[in-house]
Write a protein that binds this DNA or RNA. Structure first.
Lengths: 335, 335
DNA sequence: ATCCTCCGTGTAATCGATTCCACGAGGAGG
DNA sequence: CCTCCTCGTGGAATCGATTACACGGAGGAT
């Protein structure tokens, strides 16, 4: 692979001059520039990003650590992050933590070893020492979707309270009174927050959220199934199950079906996070949709602000309810 | 951020010695090693991967260029690739081409600029000059799932012919005779290959595949809908539509529904690629499942063989039919 | 004509690691 | 006691870029 020296030699100039034309520094004579450029073309030269990064101490690369690549919410997020970053001249390296704190740490470490310019994280847990260190050590960092308290890191996230309230209103209007929730891990902010929003919305309608109507899941389909089984075994099972992510609702659906029960006739179902194929399930699933693309783009902009020495603010977007047939009522929007 | 010099100074040794203990070179006295190690711990030192890569001319990083991150098949592939690579001590950088040749080139270029050790590609098109150059210039490279002809690059892929034949047999047994297919872009090998497999399976059953029963899609849901619309407008519409990927089948389903038709009673549906939520659609979709995880892992192993100077063989795995209810018949396997 | 300025370019230091080579100390062998 | 080898370590070159500084020549001002 040709290096800058080869180009310099080929063009009969010094490496400094080559570097100057490559970074279009003004003080290069036009004909010199042309000679260099044609040498570049002839040799198919491409600057070595590794060497350049070492020298300039910047990689023009962002790290993104997400909790689960298989979750469509995160892949949509990753996609929008990459799009926006590319538009702004940055690359992104994705690390998939698979909801495992140890893997999350592995990726954070490996990204920092690579000297990425900034880190976008959707933390799996409450914050490992490593993550806290990274945050405090001045690495530009922004949290997306989930976050960790006690550190001064901007957060770009969705406030689901309004939409959760709309959901509860919708369910209440449909006559449902015994509502249950499958929460995420207590260590995640979104896990706690969604339960809280649900509880206060219920309170608004004079409904309680008894302890046995809160099931602890882990954002994976299997846990949705397990929690649902427990709900259905209750002497008086709930008539609605609200899963706080798009994977757990699938597990819930499985379990309900496996028992020969029907959605929504026997148990209604709703989920946090809307994904394209909720339209195609039987029945289509009512969900709370986050503005995922905007979330990713805003996070990238905030992070790049930090990277380039500006300041960044937290951003809070809001979610909205998408009504389908999994909670009953034929009048709902088209499938 | 502490550098090797700081560590050396702190431990009272030279940088050469620090480097030796870090790469556990044998000739370092035990107490020296301890002193260095504690300096490392005390400073929280981590070697700069950029500098190391520049010197050693290897990044221990693999590039993966996939056609579409939003397609669950590719995200599962990406996940298994990352898992296997990590297990073997490599990182992976994913580039999403979004089925766009220009974006694909962008990523290939950017990955090569970063001097990744090897490239895993699932080509979007027939092979841009850049891709061909890369392949020929000696960059270790392996194709996954799709490939490009005319270059000497190992291919790790699935042979779907057996499964397609099983599918056709299944459909034939169910009494279907007018079968249609939604193909992928002609530029992709999987696009062409799947149509071919379908046609020869049909021939085996004495069935023809008329030109108006082959629709050209682009592996995106919308194209599935458009092609299906054309099929249904035919004077004698097909009674089965086989979509060659998991996104287009959704589009097909939408269009069928929008016309008030039912699956499988009016039109049966099947797809190439099985994804977790095919179980949850209405009705569950019969699909041809690729051993996606094994595909990714085999590809990584082949690539690393190349990277580390060994030779690599192409790998062909086989797909299998997963029967559900979208083609009719209640006797089918459990959902 | 002389001096100063500015322009275009080259030389060399630098980033943070790895690694070849040299060197001094100490032990073994004669 | 001298020589030679081995062991542990340090010095310095190197990877491929960027960039501060120096320098020669041309042109303008006086």
């Amino acid at each position: 692979m040709a290096s800058i020296k080869d180009v310099a030699h080929h063009a009969g100039v010094s490496v400094a001059t080559v570097s100057r034309v490559l970074n279009d520094h003004p003080s290069v004579r036009a004909d010199t520039r042309d000679r260099v450029l044609s040498a570049v073309a002839e040799l198919g030269y491409r600057p070595n990003a590794v060497a350049r990064s070492l020298r300039t101490d910047q990689t023009r690369t962002l790290g993104l650590v997400i909790s689960d690549v298989l979750n469509p919410f995160f892949t949509e997020l990753a996609r929008s992050v990459e799009d926006e970053a590319r538009a702004l001249g940055y690359s992104v390296i994705i690390g998939n933590a698979d909801e495992r704190p140890d893997l999350q740490d592995h990726h954070v470490r490996s990204l920092m070893d690579r000297r990425i310019d900034g880190l976008l994280v959707s933390p799996t847990d409450g914050g490992s020492p490593l993550m806290l260190d990274a945050a405090r050590s001045g690495t530009p960092m922004v949290f997306v979707d989930r976050w960790i308290g006690g550190v001064d890191v901007p957060v770009v996230r969705t406030d689901g309270r309004g939409a959760v309230r709309d959901l509860v209103a919708h369910l209440h209007a449909l006559g449902h009174r015994r509502l249950a929730i499958i929460s995420g891990p207590a260590a995640t902010t979104t896990g706690r927050e969604r339960v809280q929003a649900f509880r206060s919305a219920l309170a608004e309608f004079g409904l309680a959220l008894p302890a046995d109507h809160i099931g602890q899941g882990d954002f994976q389909a299997d846990s949705g199934r397990r929690v649902t089984a427990r709900f259905l075994d209750l002497p008086e099972p709930p008539d609605v199950i609200f899963a706080t992510d798009n994977l757990m609702v699938l597990g819930a659906m499985d379990e309900i079906r496996a028992r020969g029960l029907r959605v929504p006739d026997d148990v209604a179902l709703a989920a946090f996070d809307d994904v394209p194929w909720f339209v195609h399930t039987d029945p289509p699933i009512t969900a709370i949709a986050q503005p995922t693309g905007e979330l990713g783009r805003a996070a990238v902009r905030a992070l790049i602000d930090l990277v380039e020495g500006r300041t960044a603010e937290s951003v809070i977007l809001s979610a909205r309810l998408v009504t389908r047939r999994s909670c009953g009522e034929p009048e709902g929007s088209k499938p």
